[in-house]
Amino acid sequence: MIKKFLLYFLLFFVSNLFSQNFDINTLRSINLNRNQNLDPTFKNITNSYAVISIGTPLTLFAIGIINKDPQLKKEALFIGETVAASVLITFALKRIIKRDRPFETYPEIEKLTSGGGYSLPSGHTSITFATATSLSIAYPKWYVIAPSFVWATAVGYSRIHLGVHYPSDVLAGALVGSGSAYLTYKINKWMNKKIKNEHL
């Protein structure tokens, strides 16, 4: 599964190299022609990633402790593990790929928020899609899934609007975040099955 994920990511990155013009042209179109009245809104959206992604598992875990609900604590840990996995994978990929930020390569791009380090994949997008996907796995209801992915998509779009990521960075971040959730889910399922078999 990990090999397949890395292969898909590599194919995505190679294809991106051949579509750099599309990537920067799309970024220019969004960033330079943006509605500047929406800048504060997208700054708030982009900054919401940490509060929600860290706050969600912590809040669920606290409620689980208060209500003495082991299932809720288990789901909270799963979401927290997914976010942690996405952070580690994103950090590793950034260090391997070492893609410069768009405003460093193209001075006309307006940087409107913080964006340090390497560009690919987008960390904000990775973390938010990890949160949205793990929430959707833990609570597969439309009223959880729909707002979770609308929020994650809005955060990803905000990174382009604010000039700190290429569209391909955001797409890669979405893949890493969603993949982290699926991978964490599969690992947890395997470990739980192994523990159960050992106690038989």
Rank of each mutant, 00 (worst) to 15 (best):
Gly117Thr: 08
Ser126Val: 02
Ala154Asp: 03
Ala130Ser: 07
Val170Arg: 07
Tyr143Lys: 10
Ser122Gly: 12
Trp151Asn: 03
Leu162Asn: 01
Ser136Val: 05
His124Leu: 09
Phe103Tyr: 15
Trp142Thr: 15
Ser119Pro: 07
Ala138Thr: 08
Leu183Tyr: 15
Leu162Glu: 04
Asp169Trp: 00
His165Gln: 07
Lys94Arg: 12
Thr153Glu: 00
Lys111Met: 11
Tyr182Pro: 04
Tyr185Gln: 12
Ala172Phe: 09
Ile96Leu: 14
Lys193Gly: 11
Leu112Ala: 05
Val164Pro: 05
Gly179His: 05
Ala154Lys: 01
Ser178Asn: 07
Thr113Gln: 10
Ser158Leu: 08
Tyr106Leu: 05
Tyr157Met: 05
Gly173Ile: 05
Ile109Gln: 09
Ile96Lys: 09
Ala172Lys: 08
Ala130His: 06
Gly117Met: 13
Pro140His: 12
Tyr143Cys: 01
Leu112Ser: 05
Thr133Pro: 01
Gly179Val: 04
Ile96Ala: 11
Ile127Glu: 08
Thr105Arg: 12
Tyr182Trp: 15
Ala92His: 09
Ser136Trp: 02
Ser178Lys: 06
Lys193Cys: 02
Thr105Leu: 13
Ala154Gly: 00
Tyr143Thr: 04
Ile127Met: 12
Met191Asn: 14
Tyr157Asp: 08
Ala172His: 04
Gly116Val: 10
Leu135Pro: 02
Ile195Asn: 13
Ala138Ser: 15
Pro140Phe: 12
Ile160Glu: 11
Asn192Trp: 12
Thr90Gln: 09
Ser136Phe: 00
Lys193Val: 06
Val170Gln: 02
Gly163Trp: 01
Lys189Met: 10
Gly179Thr: 01
Leu171Thr: 11
Tyr157Glu: 05
Leu93Phe: 10
Pro107Tyr: 11
Gly123Arg: 03
Pro147Leu: 00
Tyr143Ala: 00
Ile137Asn: 01
Glu104Asn: 15
Ser136Leu: 01
Ala181Pro: 03
Ser136Gln: 05
Pro140Trp: 13
Ala92Met: 14
Ser158Asp: 04
Arg159Leu: 11
Ser134Lys: 09
Thr125Glu: 09
Ile145Thr: 15
Tyr157Ile: 07
Phe149Glu: 01
Ser148Tyr: 00
Ala138Ile: 13
Gly156Tyr: 08
Arg99Trp: 08
Tyr166Phe: 15
Phe129Ile: 04
Ser158Asn: 10
Pro140Tyr: 13
Ser178Arg: 02
Ala130Asn: 00
Ile97Ser: 03
Leu135Thr: 06
Ile160Asp: 03
Ile96Thr: 07
Val176Cys: 07
Phe149His: 05
Ser148Trp: 00
